[in-house]
Write a protein that binds this DNA or RNA. Sequence first.
DNA 1: GCCAACGTTGGC
DNA 2: GCCAACGTTGGC
Length: 134
Amino acid sequence: MNYWLLKSEPNVYSFDKLKSEKKGIWDGVRNYQARNNLKAMKKGDLAFFYHSNIGKEIVGIVKIIKESYPDSTSDDLRWVVVEVEPFYTFKKPISLQQIKSDAILQNIGLIKQSRLSVMTIKPEEFDYILAFDN
DNA sequence: GCCAACGTTGGC
DNA sequence: GCCAACGTTGGC
């Protein structure tokens, strides 16, 4: 079981939209490192859903329900998608500011590699962030 | 709107 | 294979 973080601009594709649609295809990734992370995802893995640009906060968790397959929004076979469904909604979203100001989370990918849209989250980071919500 | 931090492209 | 120029992402 691995943990991930997926970024989306909420004005393009928000967590609320995913919830209203019950499941979603994570398409449009055009970066090798992000693509490699998509390929490494297994059914049942969990991922934080982060709103970039607007909100700048982790708003929920999604579950990977279908492993990677070619992205139909590109005719280039290098790119892939996964399918996700809503798994958990944070009672109170975790802001980037909160993550940045936490000594434990200084090495999280969200801070270290701010431009990457699909990244891994260490199990201890996942548990630690989830505990904020209780 | 600006800029830092990348990633990509293309000339050599 | 190097590197300059350019494009993109995302925080501020």
